[in-house]
């Protein structure tokens, strides 16, 4: 990563933990994981809590849908590491990689329910243009998304707008497909907490 402290500035205990992760996963420790272990009192602990609440807390959206939302927001930000990580996670969660790929390729024609499509449309506009209107929200409500679903989707959008920015600023290193698959398996088993 672009800050030396994020590559080397960890306590002895954290370095041991990283070595265990490498040993058991047989993959490098992803930079996304390293980031939340650096001075966790400043960012990592509460960032993980918020992200876990958004991605795994109570919601009418399934985990697979929320991982798809995360991948879509990352795509809107053109954030390479996060697109790969959450495409892998959404694909594993839904057991339907072609559906995930279709959404990222062309939202309008993708084979998904209208409430999800309308919600993604809003999140894409908010992420890329920085604004959405009450009319936009009404269109999603008319398409069948509930107010709570829209609120929950905005939380996912926020968590990934944060993570995308940090991934691209700090320069998260891309992983192999096998390593992204291993990370996806971990996120589906353990979540973000």
């Amino acid at each position: 990563m672009r800050l030396d402290i994020l590559n080397h500035g960890y306590s002895r205990g954290t370095k041991v933990l990283f070595a265990m992760i490498r040993l058991f996963s047989r993959q490098p420790v992803p930079d996304a994981a390293k980031l939340v272990f650096y001075r966790p009192d400043f960012y990592g602990t509460l960032a993980k809590k918020f992200t876990h609440e958004a991605m795994r807390g109570p919601s009418a959206w399934s985990v697979a849908d929320r991982e798809l939302i995360a991948a879509y927001v990352s795509k809107m930000n053109n954030s390479a590491f996060c697109i790969s990580a959450h495409t892998a996670t959404a694909s594993q969660a839904s057991e339907d990689g072609s559906r995930v790929a279709a959404v990222l390729n062309d939202l309008d024609s993708a084979p998904i329910d209208e409430p999800l499509r309308a919600t993604l449309r809003i999140l894409g506009k908010l992420t890329q243009e920085g604004t959405v209107t009450a009319d936009d929200m009404q269109a999603a409500l008319a398409a069948g998304a509930s107010p709570q679903q829209l609120e929950d989707a905005l939380a996912v959008c926020t968590a990934f707008n944060i993570t995308n920015r940090l991934a691209d600023t700090f320069g998260f290193e891309q992983l192999t497909p096998e390593a992204f698959d291993a990370g996806a398996k971990y996120l589906l088993k353990r979540g973000y907490a």
């Binding site: 908010l126 604004t131 959405v132 009450a134 929200m137 829209l150 939380a155 926020t158 944060i162």
Partner: peptide, 15 residues
């Protein structure tokens, strides 16, 4: 990201 969140929540509340 917080400004985006607030913008989205305000639009939803208005709707």
């Amino acid at each position: 990201s917080t400004r985006l969140y607030e913008t989205g929540l305000a639009a939803l509340a208005e709707a």
